[in-house]
Amino acid sequence: MTERVAGADRRVERQGRRRGVMGWVDVRGRRLGGWAFILNRLTGLGVLFYLYLHLIVLSQLAVGPSAWDSLLRNWFLNPVFLLLDVVLLAGLVIHGLNGVRLALVGFGIVIDRQKALLLAFGVLGAILIVIGALRFISDAGAK
């Protein structure tokens, strides 16, 4: 039985099945370090996107106090935005902790224990995200 390779073209073969940028987020066959690599890129892009979004939102301050208060009331106390806050926190924690790991391993300070470091930071990150999420929810409930 013969079937075509999805998305295949001659260009792929000439380039030697080079994965390209999409290969960075291709999870097939990836192992623990590969997942950390993928997460670091996705969270990095997410945090970069948030930075610009944040600047746009802050520009409402220039419009006046009523515009800012209205934005807070109508948007930021919405449960969907609370969920996005948790996603943002998760992105910052994952990218930040993984960044520390990469610095420690990348400069040769902790080479032999890189996998243990990844697991330890993974557990620490999960704890921080859960604590942060609970804090967001309790704060929202108090308002």
């Binding site: 990836r30 192992r31 623990l32 370090g33 590969g34 950390a36 670091n40 890189q114």
Partner: peptide, 10 residues
């Protein structure tokens, strides 16, 4: 250039 995915080692 290495971005420490450690896929090569694995």
């Amino acid at each position: 250039r290495c971005h420490l995915a450690f896929e090569c080692t694995e």
